[in-house]
Computed example of a mutant assay.
Amino acid sequence: MKLKVAKEAAKLIKDGMVVGLGSGSTAAMFIRELGSRIEEEELTVFGIPTSFESKMLALQYGIPLVSLDEYDVDIAIDGADEVEKETLFLIKGGGGCHTMEKIVDYNAKEFVVIVDESKIKNKLSYPIPVEVLPQAYRVVMKKLKDMGGEPIIRLAERKRGPVITDNGNMIIDVSMEIDDAVSLESEINNIPGVVENGIFTKVDKVLVATKKGIKTLKK
């Protein structure tokens, strides 16, 4: 189903566009499909990657890369770990790339999320990834506990110690009630030492792969 929604998202890209290239398994399929369209239709399309992974995939599939220093983003295509059905609020950052994802996605003229139906939930409950400066991890964890959260440091699987992001920082995953996502997104970011958190509240539409086809959700 992921491939179906990736193909559908690739159809949204028009000649001359600058595209935000998301991170994760579904976004990776989109990057591959976009590369195929560029080659087959001889499109002039530029990509702005949101992670080292999406950068390498774009280079592999022949998508020319530019940066936010040079261009505005016409459309960003990205995945999500969880989507709240009614609000279209998201949790992202399971892959540790949410800081650059949010920078690119929030600055796009249109932000489109691509997921399969297993990611659609009635209420957000996925642990919130919080990227923090290494020097501040202890005090940030204390603040998150004071807010009613249960924070843990994300540990690496094939190295000892914590996961280190593309930006050289650590990630704290915090489980907590999300009753007001907009306020909580700002409240977490206001903690000194926090770089960015994985609550996303500015989404234009969500393409959902279901057994019956592609469903479009809008606010």
Rank of each mutant, 00 (worst) to 15 (best):
H98N: 05
H98P: 05
T99W: 08
T99I: 09
M100F: 04
E101H: 02
E101Y: 03
K102I: 08
K102M: 08
K102Y: 05
V104A: 04
V104F: 10
V104C: 04
D105G: 08
Y106G: 04
A108I: 10
A108G: 06
A108D: 07
K109Q: 07
E110R: 15
E110A: 13
E110M: 12
E110S: 15
F111V: 15
F111Y: 14
V112E: 00
V112A: 02
V112I: 15
V113G: 02
V113M: 03
I114G: 07
I114A: 08
I114F: 12
V115T: 13
D116W: 15
E117R: 09
S118V: 14
K119M: 13
K119S: 10
K119P: 12
K119T: 10
K123M: 12
K123T: 11
K123R: 15
K123A: 12
K123N: 14
K123Y: 01
L124N: 03
L124R: 05
L124F: 14
S125F: 11
S125L: 11
S125R: 15
Y126D: 02
Y126W: 13
P127V: 01
P127N: 04
P127M: 01
P127Q: 03
P127H: 04
P129S: 11
P129T: 10
P129Y: 07
V130S: 06
V130R: 01
V130N: 03
L133K: 05
P134W: 04
Q135E: 13
Q135W: 03
A136T: 02
Y137E: 04
Y137H: 09
Y137V: 04
R138H: 05
V139R: 02
V140T: 06
V140I: 06
M141T: 03
M141S: 07
M141H: 03
M141D: 00
K142F: 00
K143I: 01
K143Y: 00
K143W: 00
K145W: 00
K145S: 04
D146W: 05
M147P: 09
M147N: 12
G148V: 09
G148T: 11
E150G: 10
P151A: 14
P151Y: 05
P151E: 08
I152H: 14
I153Q: 04
I153P: 01
R154M: 09
R154C: 10
R154Y: 08
R154H: 06
A156Y: 14
E157I: 10
R158I: 07
K159T: 15
R160E: 15
R160C: 15
G161I: 05
G161D: 07
P162V: 10
V163A: 07
V163N: 01
V163Q: 02
V163M: 11
V163C: 04
V163T: 08
I164R: 11
I164K: 14
I164W: 09
N167L: 15
N167V: 06
G168T: 05
N169R: 01
N169V: 01
N169L: 02
M170Q: 03
I171T: 06
I171W: 00
I172D: 01
D173V: 08
D173Q: 09
V174C: 03
V174P: 00
S175D: 09
S175H: 07
S175E: 09
S175G: 04
E177P: 05
E177T: 12
D179T: 15
D179I: 14
D179P: 05
A181H: 11
V182H: 10
S183Y: 07
L184M: 09
L184P: 02
